[in-house]
Amino acid sequence: MTPVFLVAAALAVAGALGVILSRQPVHSVLALVLNFLGLAALYISMDAEFLGVVQLIIYAGAIMVLFLFVIGLLTARKDPVEREAGEPLPLQRPLSIAAAGTLALLLGGSLLVARFGGRPGVPTGFGTVKEFGRHLLVTHVLPFELTAFVLMVAVVGVIVLVGRKQA
């Protein structure tokens, strides 16, 4: 357990808790950014430099801005704050917390004690932009192209969904 890991993990958990506990959506978004910052630090600590940067730029940058934009758009008209008048579904809250708690305990506990037959060191150039690019564009070029297709479908889908006459 390195100090970097401990700090970043605390950051990520705090961010996650912030997301699910805050009342205002804007606070949730900010907590999520905090979580992403922690994750980016973890990535970099694991030699995934490129991925850490991407996490910051795309997630904490682009996607979160999108969320904020939507919140702003909707808040301009109405109050998007949810009606938190208790829990309408019976037993939903205790059951959910129990189930998720068990999940975290079991999965986390078993992962914590598990022994994996990994290699101690990493090859040279592991996680660098050059190496990552070679893997992405040479070895896995077909999935890469397919994600381009998925993105295009998403764009078209969004236009079809929202881009009605009045919009």
Binding site: Q92, L95, S96, L106, S110
Partner: peptide, 24 residues
């Protein structure tokens, strides 16, 4: 089959926990 997505999600997670318990 209540129609509430959160209920479905809860069922799903409980099932997942059951599978996990079995494997663990």
């Amino acid at each position: 089959h209540s129609g509430y997505v959160r209920r479905y999600g809860l069922t799903l997670v409980i099932g997942l926990v059951a599978v996990l318990i079995y494997f663990a």
